[in-house]
Structure formats: C-alpha cells, structure tokens
Design a binder for these strands. Structure first.
Length: 332
RNA sequence: GCCGAGGUAGCUCAGUUGGCAGAGCACAGCCCUGAAAAGGCUGGUGUCGACAGUUCGAUUCUGUCCCUCGGCA
C-alpha cells in the first residue's frame, strides 16, 4: 500500500467498538447487473478489499467465462476468494466459507469493513447465516451414488432415502438427483439423517452484523446486458478459453465445466450443435440463471434493494450503496 | 386485377366429422444447508382476422370484407 498523506486520502477505519460487532457488508444481485464495477468503487471509498462470493470465479483459468474482473478493472483493489483452486478439484460451500471467514477476520483485524460481492446465493448465506455441521461430501461415496442413479434411476435412490430419512424425502422431489444423493451421502457417512442437521441449524447463526444490499434492474434491461456480455465474451476468446481447459484435460462432466457457457461451448466444440444454437442456449440459460438468482435473493431476509436505472453510472450506484453503508456503520 | 395457399398463445404450428382449443420454443413464478453458474418443481382466456348467415350452440359450415405470402398478368 502506498504511503499517502492522510489529509488527501481519508482512511475510514472502524472503531474498536465497531470491530467487536463484526460488521459485514454484502452486495448481491443477478449476473450482469453490474455488481463488480460498483464494488470496486465502494471498496475504494472504504479502502477495503473486494471479497467475491462466486462459485465459478474460484477456479484458476476460468476467467472470461466467469466474468472475473480483469486486473485493470480491479483498479488496484485486492480481489480475494478468486482463483482458489483448479477446475478439477472439488470445491463447495463449506470450503468457500472457510476461506471467506479467514479473509473477513483479517479485514476486521485491520479495522476495515469487509465487503462481500457476489451472485452465489448459497455461498453468501453460509456467511450471513452459517452452515450446518453435516459432514462434507465424500467423492468416492458420491461417485457410487451417481453411478447408481444412472443405472437404476433416481427414483430408486429416492425410495431408499424415504426409508432412512423420511423427513428429507418429503421435502425433496423424487427427480432431484443432486439433493437426493447428498442426503443419502450424509446418512451413509455418519448414520444421521441430513434433515436432523438442517432442523437443528435452521440457518440460525448470526456470526456477523450484516448489511445486505441487493442490486437489480428492469428485467428487459438486465437481459440486454446479459446478451451483450455474452457477445463480448465470444468476441474476446471465450471459445479459446474453453478449448484450452478441455485440452488440459478438464472433463465436460466436471462441476467446473458444467458452468454456464463452458457447457454450451464444449458441446459446440465437440460438434454437437452449431454456433448459432450454442449462442442461443448460452444466452437462454444465463437468463434463466439470473431469474433463479433473483428468486433466491428475494427470499433472503433483510435485503435492501436498489434498482439501477439504465442511465445510472457505476459511480452513481456506488454512491447510493455508500450512503447505505454509512448509515449502517453509524448505527453500530 | 385474376388464380392458389394461409390468417389459432410472444414465435412456429397442430386441432376440433360444429359442444367455451393444444404442443414445441419463448416467457413467468417457486424450491434449495459442502455439485449451487449445479439440481428440481409449477404455470396456457388466447376477441381461434372482422362482420353477417345457418344452428340449441360456430374457432370449426356458408357468404362478404380485410390482411399476408406465392404464381399469372
């Protein structure tokens, strides 16, 4: 960090009393709403880092397709919780939480406001409301359950779940392979139903004093931005990035390569659809994803929503966010 | 102007031997506790081009008109 005369650069650090309350500011919103640009401005103002909450930006080498901010866009602001692992390594909400808690802790020790920005609802929730103590995924067990689902059908697994954990079964749809498998996995690992962990935890932790800000735009405008961004990515080497990852041996079935865009691009590169169809699916699936994100965040309690108008600059939106944060800090 | 074909959901179309219409895509809503950019669920009233006639009843039959697309002039 450069040594700058404090008269020119105010350093709004937290007081000891504020730090003790463990404040946390989180900016959420659908993909392409403009979170990253705003976050950099906000981070500059508070002289803090940007902590991303993005399940895809954690992978090294997946840059363009995950809309990872380029170095120039970061404007000297450290971005953390990016590039944490390789695309063939398992990553999950629990690992994210561990990394994030550590980063937040460091910022608190420096008496700075931790600023989390991201679109992965579950990851944000693990910070804001904690994560239950159920055992983490165990690759061997999971692989076996997946194979079984493929061979005999998910319904059979669902039926088994209904006998060992009727509570979970009643909450899941028999076709929801991912969650049925996870529930069976937990039961196999520790003999306890995952529903027991969920019930006792109930997202009841409150490790931080949190301010949640949601950014949104008019739906049509958001969709236009999504499509424009995808066109830009395709014009700037997204297919090359995908080809490079495939060439390095990352399989199409891996969690990382099943991400938006990579999946469609890999299908196209394998000759399974033409270019126009690939673009169509990439855009459509991204629109649908943005919708799911909004459903999730709408349900998250206490989100303060800010609607961004087409004519608003990132600086303007950042100004509105900073106002909310100032109010929040003043109330601590 | 004449001859064809057609006008049904945002789009492409199916259909009703006359009984208040249905698929795909698009879209909308929802669920989610270590795969979460993943995974799953739900949703179709639309002047069936307009008007008139026949009929108990017309989107379906008849007539006129309007529009679209071909072909011929």
């Amino acid at each position: 960090m450069d040594v700058t005369p404090t008269a020119l650069l105010p350093m709004p650090t937290l007081t000891e009393a504020q730090v003790r309350l463990k404040p946390l500011v989180v900016i959420v919103g659908p993909t392409a709403v403009g979170k990253s640009r705003v976050a950099v401005e906000v981070a500059k103002h508070f002289n803090t880092d940007v902590l991303t909450a993005d399940s895809r930006q954690v992978y090294c080498g997946m840059d363009l397709g995950t809309d990872k901010p380029a170095l120039s866009e970061r404007q000297g602001i450290p971005h953390r919780l990016i590039d944490l692992t390789q695309p063939d390594e398992p990553f999950n909400a629990g690992l994210y939480r561990r990394h994030a808690v550590e980063a937040i802790d460091q910022l608190h020790r420096a008496r700075l406001v931790p600023l989390v920005v991201g679109g992965t609802g579950l990851y944000v929730r693990t910070l804001v409301r904690g994560l239950c103590e159920a055992p983490p995924a165990q690759p061997a067990i999971r692989a076996r359950l997946q194979a079984e689902a493929r061979e005999v059908g998910v319904e059979r697994l669902y039926h088994r779940l209904a006998s060992v954990d009727p509570v979970s079964a009643s909450k899941l749809h028999p076709h929801d392979a991912a969650k049925v498998i996870r529930a069976l996995e937990v039961h196999q690992l520790c003999g306890k139903p995952i529903s027991a962990f969920h019930t006792s935890h109930a997202f009841g932790d409150q490790p931080y004093r949190t301010l949640l800000i949601g950014l949104d735009r008019n739906r049509e405008a958001l969709y236009r931005r999504i499509e424009a961004r995808i066109d830009w990515q395709l014009d700037h080497g997204f297919l090359d990035e995908t080809a490079r990852l495939l060439a390095r041996g990352y399989r199409r079935e891996s969690a990382a390569m099943k991400g938006l865009g990579y999946r469609q691009a890999a299908d196209y590169l394998a000759g399974e659809c033409d270019y126009a169809e690939m673009v169509r699916r990439f855009k459509r699936d991204t629109r649908r994803f943005a919708k799911r994100q909004l459903t999730w965040f709408r349900r998250e309690p206490a989100v303060q929503w800010l609607e961004i108008a087409e004519s608003d600059s990132p600086e303007h939106t950042a100004g509105r966010v900073i106002e909310r944060i100032d109010l929040f800090l003043a109330g601590l």
